[in-house]
Design a protein around this nucleic acid. Sequence first.
DNA 1: CGCAGTAAGTTACCCCGAGTAAGTTAGACT
DNA 2: AGTCTAACTTACTCGGGGTAACTTACTGCG
Lengths: 191, 191
Amino acid sequence: MLDAAEEIFGERGYAATSMDDIAASVGVSKPLVYQYYGSKDGLFVACLSRLRAQLLDSVSDAVLAAPDAEQAMYAGLTQWFRFLDEHPRAWAVMVDEGMLSAGPAAEAADQVRSDFVGLIAHMVRLNLPPDRETTDDEVQVVAQALSGATERLAIWRSKAGGGPSPEQVADTLMNVFWIGLRSVRDGESWR
Amino acid sequence: MLDAAEEIFGERGYAATSMDDIAASVGVSKPLVYQYYGSKDGLFVACLSRLRAQLLDSVSDAVLAAPDAEQAMYAGLTQWFRFLDEHPRAWAVMVDEGMLSAGPAAEAADQVRSDFVGLIAHMVRLNLPPDRETTDDEVQVVAQALSGATERLAIWRSKAGGGPSPEQVADTLMNVFWIGLRSVRDGESWR
DNA sequence: CGCAGTAAGTTACCCCGAGTAAGTTAGACT
DNA sequence: AGTCTAACTTACTCGGGGTAACTTACTGCG
């Protein structure tokens, strides 16, 4: 049932999808869907959570399998873009996340997204020596920035079909971000 | 009329706003609004364009007034966050941009957003010596990344009221991004 | 002055889609 | 057999996007 919803949401977008469509495609009637998921938002969030969890797992695995922080970040970035290339419909659903800017469902969507920021923040912290006093705010800023950057890049890539490969994008990002982080770690400042 | 729409969209969000509400608040009837803007999306895009233009102007001014590329980037970042602090309702409207993921209106919204990416790409290019062969893709990746990063950071800051100041966020970003860019300019690579 | 023609708005409606109340089938237990 | 419950459906309400057809008011012209 989530599969059907995922497919239709992905193809037509959130707004253009009706609950009747989903119910029909899975072969049941609309109220049954409501019984399970409560509302359209509820169903959407359920799809979203599952997809994000898959993506997070996939990226986490790549990160954890890497020998050091540097390779971990590169592997994570590459895997992020690769996964989205391989699951275009999943990504289409996630892009609609913004749809839920209002209401209690937005909270759930944020929760799902913040798992990612958490993972990134963890990686960033790994890269900073524990003795250096780094405020949580600083780590948060960097993690949010990287998360936002990768999300926007994913949208950009999916729109312009023949863009650079996952490896190329990850490489460019590393050239800016990693070196930047390394410098921060070494106590450098831009001024 | 745009003012009224801006206000209501900003307060209640796109989905929760009805055309009747806007029409009533401006003191006319709904069909008149349709005569002017064609559709709900049309009205929303009109608001959005105006707001984005204001924001773009504000940031452009800060960038152009700076003495060098380094200061320009810092000033631009700071101004971005400052503007959004000072115009919370404007920002609320812009966050709803994602709402238009489907339909022709999405195109218009993208157009509006891409102006920003253009400005950033320009700044990035300024920072790279003209002789270094840098593919357009690389510049695009960095520009998209920075644009996504700042957008996400703006959302994050507006959610957690008492976060770091515009200057602090800009400073942290500079420490990562600027140093990263400088290294790229100097031909460094992360590997 | 009287009258077409048009600009600016309005009322009253259509229709689709989210969400629900009440009914219907089908097994499970006594 | 009879009843209770779970799973599911039909048939609705209601709100909001969008529109057709009407009304008003103002112009220009004989």
